[in-house]
Design a protein around this nucleic acid. Sequence first.
DNA 1: GCCAACGTTGGC
DNA 2: GCCAACGTTGGC
Length: 151
Amino acid sequence: MAYWLMKSEPDEFGIDDLALKKCERWDGVRNYQARNFMREMQEGDFIFMYHSSCKTVGISGVMTVARAGYPDPSAEDPSSAYFDKKQPSENRWTAVDVAFEERFAKVLTLEKIKQLAVNDPRLSDLMLLSRSRLSVMPISHEQWQCLMEHV
DNA sequence: GCCAACGTTGGC
DNA sequence: GCCAACGTTGGC
């Protein structure tokens, strides 16, 4: 059992959208490190959904991995915004399916997480705070518990 | 909308 | 294989 965090822009697809749809493909990731983490995901793993580039930035809820990594169909689809123009034939990219688990009553904001990290050594190596542009990252069990205590 | 951070591309 | 140019992410 592993824990992860994935970023999404809620104007595109947020926790409310997932709550309605229950299950959705998570595609369009075009960064190697993020992709490699997605390839490690196992069915049943827990994922924080993180809302970025929006009014209230932070963790908005919990998802689970419904289907482990598989070739991302959007990379081969010329009509997709995520079409891989360089190498459409050798699908380099990975998608997973995610299932809705929980929507937090209040977003656990980035601001709050930064505050918590000042005093709680469990959060000292949270990748969210050190790797600003990484959109998929692992979360340790300790970090997960610590963050859940403040939801 | 600005801009810092940083990943990717491509010339050499 | 270096590194400058370029493009994208994401907080503010």
